[in-house]
Computed example of a mutant assay.
Amino acid sequence: MDERTDLRHHGDVDAEPGLLDFAVNVRGDGPPDWLAERLLAGIATLGRYPSVAAEEAARDQVAARHGRRREEVLLLSGAAEGFAMLPRLGSSAAVLLHPSFTEPEWALREAGVPVERVVLDAPYRLDPASVPGSADLVVLGNPTNPTSVQHRAADVLALRRPGRILVVDEAFADAVPGEPESLAGMSLPDVLVLRSLTKTFALAGLRCGYVLGPPELLAQLQVGRPHWPLGSLQVEAIRACCEPAAVEWAQREARTIEIERAEMVEMLTAAGISVSGPACGPFLLLRVPDGDLVRKKLRERGIAVRRGDTFPGLGPDHVRVAVRAAEPVSMLVAALTEVLT
């Protein structure tokens, strides 16, 4: 591996209290009021162990949200827990599409699974033919962190092969209006789809997510999992975030992100800053000269951005910035302009 690549470096390391945070892709400082009230009401249940009935009700709600069956839903303590389970699939030839979120590769390597990288060149579009036919496990993100690329569902499905399991990280799919390229609603025997609820709903500290897939693969993922793997507030949050009103709320938020992203791209581009596109996620990949120095000088000005060189295929001149409203973006652009001139 590239010595600069730190597979466990995440945006929260780049952001510290007091900094204007463009490093972390969570929307806001906490969940929306309606969700916070729901969770506050759940505190009264903390004297009891999480119940099977509550877990099944949450799985039913997730299943209804995606047109699946309860048996095709596994609740997770954040999507990261799902990545930690991937070695249990028994792969002997895993392929990771990069640049992308690095936690799946770290989990597989830690378990001794042979891993091969397929690194996509800018503009980071998926070419199904680039994946070796020998791969029995393929992992990719859609939309992809940090490039903000959304691959066509048809191209992702073209990666399916006999004897291969396809894992799609859709942690940011709910930030795309209509989720047009999602595979979450497809019941396929060889496809696992991971979803996170920590980004759009601002639940990073609660760790909430789920994986969708055939019951046989979900059973493999759970081997050795402890009893009560999720607390009752996590279970309640997952159920709440998958109810129809919550899905509608998330879609309104996705449309806001779309508008903010377009404005942000225009402001950055007008300032002469290179923005990778077309972008579909709640973040943007930038390229700046002398990126290490730029990040340092931004930090001195009270602004945190996510370094890009820990993503395979990117270098020190890449930085990722979360999509934000016009006012903080103006501050970022002004600081970048000052630093770069």
Rank of each mutant, 00 (worst) to 15 (best):
T5Q: 14
T5G: 08
D6C: 08
R8K: 08
A15D: 12
P17W: 00
F22W: 02
V24D: 11
G28H: 07
P31R: 02
L39K: 10
V52L: 14
A54K: 08
E56L: 13
A64C: 06
A79P: 03
F83Y: 15
M85I: 03
P104L: 11
A111E: 08
P114H: 09
L120M: 15
L120C: 11
D121K: 05
G133H: 03
V138W: 04
T144Q: 15
N145P: 01
T147H: 05
A153W: 01
A154Q: 14
A154N: 09
D155R: 03
L159N: 05
R164L: 07
F172L: 15
A184M: 10
L188P: 06
V193L: 07
S196Y: 02
S196I: 04
A202Q: 03
A204H: 06
L206P: 07
G209P: 09
P214T: 12
E216R: 07
H227V: 14
W228G: 10
L230A: 03
V235W: 00
R239H: 11
C242G: 04
E243F: 03
V247P: 02
T256Q: 15
I257M: 09
G272L: 06
I273D: 06
G277Q: 09
P278S: 09
A279M: 10
L284P: 04
L284S: 06
L285Y: 01
D290N: 14
G291K: 04
E300G: 12
V305E: 01
R307V: 02
P316L: 08
V323F: 04
A325C: 04
V329M: 08
S330I: 00
E338Y: 03
T341H: 12
